[in-house]
Simulated assay, not measured.
Amino acid sequence: MGNAPSEAVLLLVEDNRGDIRLLEEAFSDGNVANTLHTVTDGQAALDFIYQRGEYEDAPRPDIVLLDLHLPKVDGEDVLHEIKHHPELSQTPVIVLSGVDEDLIKSRDLDHDADEDGVLEKPVDLGEFVKVIGSFEQFRLGVMRME
């Protein structure tokens, strides 16, 4: 029996229920092989990532999809925490934003988002499925090392 690639563990950090539904549909329609976990605020994201409280048994995410505008702890602070933690700094973080990528890059994100990427949230589901397909090809094609 060979070593089959395992599904990637994705953490979606998004407080907008409509965007959550859109992302879940896009992953489903795009046949992206993954396990998608969703939290709706920055504090829950940090608890999930650090495996604290109700998330003590949560898997370490292979990729984080992060909205910047979050309740409790802002997405920029979550991004900074991940990228400056010795065990988490290599975890890819894709910033999801409803604003233009150039505007995001002009903001002071401590250059944390530059390494991994910024995806503008498409309004059209079909277009978003294309983005997710590209995302799968480049990000999820890598086997997890157990």
Rank of each mutant, 00 (worst) to 15 (best):
G2V: 05
G2R: 05
N3R: 08
N3F: 01
A4C: 02
E7Y: 01
V9Y: 07
V9T: 10
L10F: 02
L12Y: 04
V13P: 00
D15N: 14
N16D: 08
N16A: 08
D19F: 07
I20K: 05
L23Q: 12
E24P: 06
A26V: 06
F27A: 02
F27Q: 06
S28Y: 13
D29T: 06
D29H: 13
D29R: 15
V32P: 03
T35P: 10
H37Q: 10
H37P: 10
T38S: 12
V39E: 10
V39N: 06
V39S: 05
T40C: 15
D41N: 15
G42P: 13
A44P: 00
L46M: 14
L46W: 09
D47M: 08
D47F: 00
F48I: 10
F48V: 07
I49R: 03
I49H: 02
Y50M: 15
Y50G: 03
E56C: 14
D57C: 01
A58Y: 02
P59K: 09
R60G: 03
R60I: 14
P61E: 08
D62F: 02
I63L: 10
D67C: 04
L68W: 02
L68E: 01
L70S: 11
K72V: 15
K72T: 14
K72I: 15
V73Q: 04
V73C: 10
E76N: 09
D77C: 09
V78E: 04
L79S: 00
K83Q: 06
K83S: 03
H84F: 09
P86C: 02
P86L: 10
P86T: 13
T91F: 01
P92D: 00
V93T: 01
I94W: 00
V95Y: 00
L96P: 02
S97V: 05
S97Y: 00
G98L: 04
V99D: 03
V99T: 05
D100Q: 05
L103K: 07
L103P: 01
L103F: 04
I104F: 04
K105D: 01
R107T: 06
L109A: 02
D110P: 02
H111L: 08
D114P: 06
E115N: 09
D116F: 00
G117V: 07
V118I: 14
E120W: 03
K121T: 09
V123E: 06
D124S: 12
G126P: 05
V129Y: 07
K130R: 13
K130Q: 14
V131M: 10
I132T: 03
I132E: 05
G133R: 15
S134C: 06
S134P: 01
F135Y: 11
E136Q: 13
Q137E: 12
R139F: 14
G141Q: 15
V142K: 15
V142Y: 13
M143P: 05
M143W: 12
R144W: 08
R144Y: 03
E146D: 12
